[in-house]
């Protein structure tokens, strides 16, 4: 009995997705909308399966091509996200730590921040052409600011008493930064990374719809022209899945790096 309860407990996370899929399937089959406009999950799964494994060729040129499309998008996300992380963390630490740096560059950055990354697309295309670069540039823009702001916040809210303790044991500025400020800011930085990876996926897909001829976003937009809404939905689901997985990856790293936070916060048991 107890085992059954435990098993049901583990199933609780699947309840909502299963209900949504079942309801959607039923709605699509009821004929309230033409089947072509809202393909049922089973139809989407069928198209997706062919896209991934090349089962029956119903997606034509995309048949069996999913891995390639996915890797194209993923590589852009990773490249842009990596550049954004490196730059945002170092600039953020500098701004948070030094009043001078803050005065010199913060106003500029805060002016650039409200400009939607998407509005850079024309310039990005002019500067970088139609290929990976404009997409990576956009991903960078989208991920940079959330990571930057969270890093600044993390550095600024570092407990002054810990800095005092560090100075007391003989730490100079550089050591205080490395051994106290940075570790203290890590929880905030990770919060920024999680927001940043979400923006990164959004902007890769946007860029691919406009400025690149490959990747999940391109397939999505291309399928729209060919009225293949099942493939559009399969592309959307793929993006959602990859976004979820990359966030999960960050959370795994975070659980390792911030293991000292266990049992000190509300999220404690989460993994």
């Amino acid at each position: 009995m107890r085992q059954i309860v435990a098993m049901l407990r583990r199933l609780d996370r699947y309840v909502v997705p299963v209900l949504i899929l079942a309801g959607w399937e039923a709605f699509s089959r009821s004929g309230a909308l033409p089947a072509a406009l809202l393909p049922a999950p089973s139809t989407v799964a069928w198209a997706w399966a062919d896209w991934v494994f090349g089962t029956d060729g119903n997606t034509q040129t995309y048949s069996g091509h999913w891995l390639f499309d996915m890797l194209a998008s993923l590589s852009r996300v990773l490249a842009g996200f990596a550049i954004a992380t490196a730059l945002a963390v170092s600039v953020g630490v500098a701004i948070g730590w030094s009043r001078t740096v803050e005065v010199i560059i913060e106003p500029t950055l805060q002016t650039l921040r409200p400009i939607p990354p998407v509005s850079w697309i024309p310039l990005a295309i002019i500067w970088f052409g139609i290929a990976n670069k404009p997409a990576i540039f956009l991903v960078f823009l989208g991920a940079f600011f959330p990571i930057l702001l969270n890093t600044i916040h993390g550095v600024k809210t570092c407990d002054r008493n810990l800095i005092r303790a560090g100075a007391m044991v003989g730490g100079g500025n550089r050591q205080l930064l490395r051994f106290i400020v940075l570790p203290a800011a890590l929880p905030s930085i990770f919060a920024g990374l999680r927001i940043g990876i979400g923006s990164a996926w959004m902007l890769t897909v946007t860029a691919e719809m406009v400025a690149v001829k490959s990747g999940l976003g391109y397939v999505l937009w291309d399928s729209y022209y060919f009225l293949r809404y099942d493939l559009v939905l399969a592309a959307m689901a793929s993006i959602g899945l990859l976004g979820f997985l990359s966030d999960f990856g960050i959370r795994l790293v975070m659980a390792r790096v911030l293991h000292w936070q266990r049992n000190t916060t509300i999220q404690s048991g989460e993994s």
């Binding site: 810990l162 303790a165 007391m168 044991v169 003989g170």
Partner: peptide
């Protein structure tokens, strides 16, 4: 400076370091 050791009102330990690293923090730096 490290020739004057301070013990604070609150312990002011680095929460991300285990006890032995906190005790040896001077050497870590």
């Amino acid at each position: 400076g490290s020739e004057r050791g301070v013990v604070f009102q609150q312990a002011n330990l680095m929460p991300w370091l285990p006890v032995w690293e906190n005790v040896g923090f001077h050497l870590l730096l």
